[in-house]
């Protein structure tokens, strides 16, 4: 009976957490369209989340594109299909690997940082101070971060896609003896607008998830250094899991027909 009770408690705990996160995300969305707005905070976050994540996303895309080209070439050689390298690299990067790996890297960098910053603000009473200064913490802290992440992730992933395809191109041309012009032609011929749009839509969702998880766990951080540490870990873990789960759902929505 104790085991069953334990399983029940865990299950209820998970349901309760999902409910709390859903309410938090709904509140964040509702505050997005209600004044006051804090454009300066938004621009600061746009720079931090968007611009400063570019090296991480770019390097991830570059090496992933290169490795993907090698993998597809060696796998395709088993049934004489080496020529599909450019198109598979492009589709793989744009549809899946660009948004998912970009999302996971940004989750590691941004969700952790947001949770640590807001968690520290909470334990040092800065969140209470904001409230006493007539400033809603959700509007001042959460909305600029969520909006900045949701808008900047598609741009980051678009740049990452180009860099990833370039990674595949460099490996294809220098290591696998592809003709440079033919590689580019194959890439562009097989890539469709819907591939790009689906990837960017995923990126926007992942950006929303990353910032929302960072803010939620920061705002609900426990006391002291340990509490902030746990909030940081929870933010990264939950953002990563939600990115992978929502990626599957979005892929079903976009491509299952």
């Amino acid at each position: 009976m104790n085991i069953l009770a334990g399983i029940g408690r865990s299950f209820l705990g998970i349901l309760s957490l999902i409910g709390r996160i859903t309410i938090f995300a709904s509140l964040a969305i509702s505050h997005l369209v209600r004044p006051p707005f804090y454009p300066r905070e938004f621009l600061v976050q746009l720079g931090y989340i968007g611009f400063l994540s570019l090296p991480v996303v770019g390097l991830t895309a570059l090496f992933t594109g290169g490795a993907l080209a090698l993998q597809i070439y060696s796998g395709g050689a088993r049934f004489n299909a080496e020529t599909v390298v450019p198109s598979i690299v492009a589709i793989g990067i744009v549809r899946e690997l660009g948004p998912v790996l970009g999302g996971l890297m940004v989750a590691g960098r941004v969700a952790a940082s947001i949770a640590a910053e807001i968690g520290t603000m909470k334990v040092t009473e800065q969140i209470d101070a904001l409230t006493t200064l007539s400033t809603h913490p959700m509007k001042y802290l959460t909305v600029p971060r969520v909006l900045a992440a949701t808008l900047s992730m598609p741009v980051l992933v678009a740049i990452g896609d180009i860099i990833g395809i370039m990674g595949g191109y460099l490996v294809g041309v220098t290591r696998l003896d592809f003709n440079a012009a033919a590689y580019m032609t194959n890439t562009l011929d097989f890539l469709e607008v819907s591939d790009v749009i689906s990837g960017l839509a995923k990126a926007a969702v992942f950006g929303f998830i990353v910032a929302t998880m960072g803010c939620y766990h920061g705002m609900n951080s426990g006391r002291g250094a340990q509490g902030v540490g746990r909030a940081t870990t929870s933010a990264v873990v939950s953002a990563s899991i939600l990115i992978l789960a929502s990626n599957y759902i979005l892929t079903e929505v976009f491509f299952s027909a």
């Binding site: 603000m121 040092t124 009473e125 800065q126 101070a129 006493t132």
Partner: peptide, 11 residues
């Protein structure tokens, strides 16, 4: 209201 917090709570 104005409030002075224990640790300052400066941003």
């Amino acid at each position: 209201f104005g409030m002075l917090f224990q640790g300052g709570a400066l941003f």
